[in-house]
Design a protein around this nucleic acid. Structure first.
Lengths: 217, 217
DNA sequence: AAACATTTTTAGTTTTGTCTAAAAATATAA
DNA sequence: TTATATTTTTAGACAAAACTAAAAATGTTT
C-alpha cells in the first residue's frame, strides 16, 4: 500500500462518515487538492485491490477491507497526536501536519506499543475517538454547541474543525476540552451567542458554536 | 527532498566514513539493492542540487550541504531507535526497519523535542553516536575486540554489524553494551577467541570479535 | 423531452525513479 | 602496449501518480 493510496483511503473514509451514498470523485479531488481525473485513475486502482467499490459515474465507497485499512491509518494518526501533545509538549494546533506523516509508518508492533505507552487513550487532543487495535471505535455522546439549548450546562469535548486558526482562537479565548460552557443568550440578528465559559462571559459567532462539540453534564 | 534522495544521501554518507576517495556508483547500487545505472541518474540529480560532487567515472562525494542533510537523517534514525528501545520496549534487533521509516519524518521541532524527551542521548542502542542538532558528532574512543590484546580488560561499547542475526546471537550469549570482556586466549588455527564475559567463559569466532567495539577500562 | 450545464471519464503528457541492454571509459593482464 | 575484462554511463522503456483538454455521461431547466 503506497503513501498515496493510503491518503485516498483516509479521505474516502472521512467523507463517508454520515454519508450513505457513494463519494464523488469531485469531492475527493476537492479534499485532496487534486483533480477529478487523477481521482478516477486512483479509484480504479483501489477497486482492483478490493479496497473500494467503484462504478463509473456512481462514486466510490469503501469495502470492509478498505475501511479496516483506513481506520488503522486514523488510529495511527490520532495516537501520534496524543504522543506529540502529551509527551513532547506540542500544542493541539501543531500536531496535524506531523501526524499526517507519522500515520504512514508501517509497523503494527509500533502502533500497539505506542498505544500501550500512552495508556490506551480513547480520544485524541481534539476530542476525536481513537480506534482500538481491532478497529473498533467507541461511540461518544456529543452534540454541537450550536444545537444546545439556552442555559443547558455542558462540557466541551471536541472540535469539528481542527484547523490551526480555529484551535488558536480557542486558546486565545481560553476554551479547551473540559471547559464548562453555558449559553447565556442568543442574538437573533446574526445568531451569535453569549456564553459563560468557566464562569467567564464571552461572545462568540455562530460559526464558532457550530464547530464545538459538547456533552451535557 | 524526496524519500529516495534522502536514502541515497544516507548511503553515500555511510560509505564515505573512513574513505577519502569518491564513492563508486557500484558501491552505492550494491548498498541500496539497485542498479549502477539508476545510481548514475540519481547522483546527477543530487549534484544539480549541490548535495554531492560528481564527475563521470570518478565517483561521488558529499558537499557540506549534502553531509549536513545526511547527518540529520542519521540523527533522526538514531534518536528514534533510542525511543523505540527506551520507551516502547523494543529490543535492539527490532528497531532498524522502523527507524528506517521514521528517519524521513520532516519536522525539526519533532526531532528536537524527541531529543529532549529522551534526555539528549549521545548514543543509540547499538553504541553509535547521535549527532546533536548542529550536526556535531562526539568522537568516541573505541576499538574492535579483534584488535585487542590478550588479558586486556575492556567493556563492550558498540557493534559494527547491527544486523538482527548478529544482535540476536549476542543476546543469546548474554553479551550487551556494558558487558566487561577479556580475551583469555586465541586459537591459532581459526583465530577464534576464548573470552571472559562478565566472569563467564565463552568461545567466539574471529568474525564475532571483528564486529564488537570495546573500550579499555 | 429537448437543451443546456455540470460532473465524470478518457486520452494523451509529464515527472520521478527505476530498469535492461548497449556503448564508452577505465583498469588489468599478457 | 596492445588485448581483455570490468566498471560506468548512455539510451530507451516502463510504472506510478499526477496533470490538461476533450469526450461522454448525468442532472437540471424550461
Amino acid at each position: 500500500m503506497t503513501y498515496s493510496e493510503e491518503n485516498y483511503l483516509k479521505v474516502i473514509y472521512h467523507l463517508s462518515i454520515g454519508n450513505t451514498k457513494g463519494i464523488t470523485t469531485n469531492a475527493i479531488a476537492n479534499e485532496m487538492d487534486s483533480k477529478p481525473s487523477s481521482v478516477t485513475d486512483m479509484v480504479k486502482k483501489l477497486a482492483e485491490k478490493d479496497l473500494v467499490i467503484y462504478k463509473k459515474y456512481q462514486g466510490v465507497s469503501l469495502t470492509d477491507k478498505g475501511r479496516q485499512h483506513a481506520v488503522m491509518i486514523v488510529r495511527k494518526h490520532r495516537l501520534w497526536e496524543v504522543f506529540l501533545v502529551e509527551k513532547l509538549d506540542f500544542s493541539w494546533d501543531e500536531v496535524h501536519d506531523v501526524a499526517e506523516q507519522l500515520e504512514h509508518i508501517k509497523s503494527e508492533k509500533l502502533t500497539d506499543k505506542l498505544d500501550e505507552f500512552l495508556d490506551f487513550p480513547t480520544e485524541d487532543p481534539h476530542g476525536d475517538p481513537i480506534p482500538d487495535r481491532e478497529g473498533k471505535i467507541a461511540k461518544v455522546e456529543k452534540q454541537l454547541l450550536s444545537e444546545t439549548e439556552l442555559h443547558q450546562k455542558v462540557i466541551c469535548v471536541g472540535v469539528k474543525d481542527s484547523s490551526a486558526s480555529f484551535l488558536q482562537y480557542l486558546d486565545k479565548q481560553q476554551i479547551a476540552l473540559g471547559s464548562s460552557i453555558e449559553i447565556v443568550s442568543r442574538e437573533h440578528f446574526d445568531q451569535s451567542l453569549t456564553l459563560k465559559v468557566n464562569d467567564r462571559q464571552l461572545s462568540v459567532s455562530y460559526k464558532i458554536a457550530a464547530n464545538l462539540f459538547v456533552k451535557t453534564v
